[in-house]
């Protein structure tokens, strides 16, 4: 049985309402459930479809069920679906060992000026022990729908090797979750994500 480098393993998925946080956390959570872990997922609801800042907290343990809140400063991995949201999470939950994978495609905040992307990226890198910034949305648009950014990010997470779930376990979950052709397209996106972090 695989063990965790750290127990509990704390992963935060950060994004904007409507991007698909809940879907990503559920797919990753299911992969861990299949391998016999305790999984707790805490979500932001309410704002979720209304363009607010949203985050999912995933807590994985061999020992027991954890609460759906990762304490401040205790995230191990941050999966960011949007740069500003990634930074927001790093500021509160980051620490000297945190590893970040983030989508570099921005989503404007209604009525607000968006800061320079270069500065945001520099701040993300400055607060992460290791980080990957990938343009998952643009890659997803090439596949026909920005929603595939989510699968690209899951692929990147698995491909980065920082995560005790391999391609085979994730593929099993995706096969159960997406029927027929949908599975194939999602696998293309997943593989793209793996490829992007391997470069």
């Amino acid at each position: 049985m695989k063990t965790l480098a750290k127990d509990p393993l704390n992963l935060i998925i950060a994004g904007v309402g409507g991007q698909g946080n809940v879907m990503i956390s559920l797919l990753i959570g299911k992969a861990f459930i299949k391998e016999g872990y305790f999984v707790t997922i805490g979500e932001t609801y309410g704002a979720s479809q209304r363009s607010g800042s949203v985050m999912s907290h995933l807590r994985i343990s061999r020992e027991n069920q954890y609460s759906p809140f990762i304490p401040n400063g205790r995230a191990d991995i941050i999966l960011g679906m949007e740069p500003v949201e990634t930074l927001r999470i790093l500021q509160q939950f980051g620490n000297s060992d945190v590893i970040t994978i983030a989508n570099s495609r921005l989503i404007h905040a209604a009525g607000m000026e968006y800061p320079s992307l270069d500065k945001i990226v520099a701040a993300i890198e400055g607060l992460s022990a290791k980080s990957w910034l990938i343009n998952a949305t643009d890659e997803a648009m090439k596949l026909g729908d920005p929603i595939f950014a989510n699968m690209i990010l899951i692929g990147a997470l698995v491909g980065s090797g920082i995560f005790p779930i391999d391609k085979k376990s994730m593929e099993l979950v995706l096969r159960e979750s997406f029927p027929g052709e949908k599975f194939d397209t999602n696998m293309v996106a997943f593989n793209k994500g793996m490829e992007l972090v391997a470069q």
Binding site: R88, N95, A109, M112, P115, G126
Partner: peptide, 28 residues
């Protein structure tokens, strides 16, 4: 201590303007 003080200092120095708030609104 939730994390090293040095890290907290670095995190808190990030300007507010880098993280504009997202106000809840009606969907597109």
């Amino acid at each position: 201590e939730s994390r090293p003080a040095e890290y907290s200092k670095k995190a808190e120095e990030i300007p507010f303007t880098y993280m504009p708030p997202r106000i809840m609104t009606f969907c597109s």
